[in-house]
Nucleic acid binder design. Structure first.
Lengths: 123, 123
DNA sequence: CCGCATCCCTGAGGATACTG
DNA sequence: CAGTATCCTCAGGGATGCGG
């Protein structure tokens, strides 16, 4: 048993803070989840809509990520028994709590892009 | 050339919104970046500190992700020429703009965990 | 239109060992 | 202490095709 210097600087509230980040990333990690949420932030969407909006995503990934989001209670899946079947995805009220986060992430990306472009032209 | 119904519902500002998310995820994606930023949010940290705080990360991933963050101008790396060498990582002023995002992500994770636990015990 | 099944493959990422 | 190098794996994820 060595006399470790651990814990000297890792108070409990820090751990909670970090665990919070971890938990969120566990749920919203992956390559597309934020994008999907971002799309649904704009209103309910159909499968095709999503595939078109989330540029680059494949059918397999899309349905997989949608399932995971549904499991976590973030989106609802509604099947409309129309001619060719129709499915609508929508954020749950609970998922609305994610909107501020998604909006900020988007805003940061936008301003970051501007900053990068500015730096390139300046040089 | 088919008469596609695309674009009917994909106005430019939506695309910008989504591209913003994309850009941010490109930079902060990956398994650990948010956690690392979260740690550095608490102040400057040494390599070992980070490895200890970001539970589960390996030496290789840590240094790789740190390099990427440094490339994007989000952290600074300072070498102290001490007995056994010492290196400190710190958020750049620019990276401070990420703090609200990280904080919200953390807060959401914390409240989500509480919600899940509540639902489990309730049942 | 929705989305599962299948095949396949790249690369993220883990474990271990080694250097300055 | 702070990494780098090497090897290896396994799952994320792309492409295609089929069925309800």
């Amino acid at each position: 048993m060595k006399n470790r210097t651990i814990d000297e600087k890792v108070p409990v509230d820090c751990k909670v803070h970090l665990r919070g980040i971890n938990d969120t990333i566990d749920i919203l990690g992956g390559k597309w989840k934020f994008m999907i949420i971002g799309c649904l932030t704009l209103g309910k969407k159909r499968y095709m809509d999503l595939q078109r909006m989330v540029e680059g995503i494949g059918s397999k990934m899309l349905s997989k990520e949608l399932q995971e989001l549904e499991l976590n209670g973030l989106i609802t899946r509604t099947v409309m028994v129309t001619k060719p079947i129709t499915v609508e995805y929508e954020l749950t009220p609970y998922a609305q709590t994610l909107k501020p986060i998604v909006d900020q992430i988007s805003a940061w990306g936008i301003q970051h892009r501007e900053k990068v472009i500015k730096e390139m032209t300046k040089k």
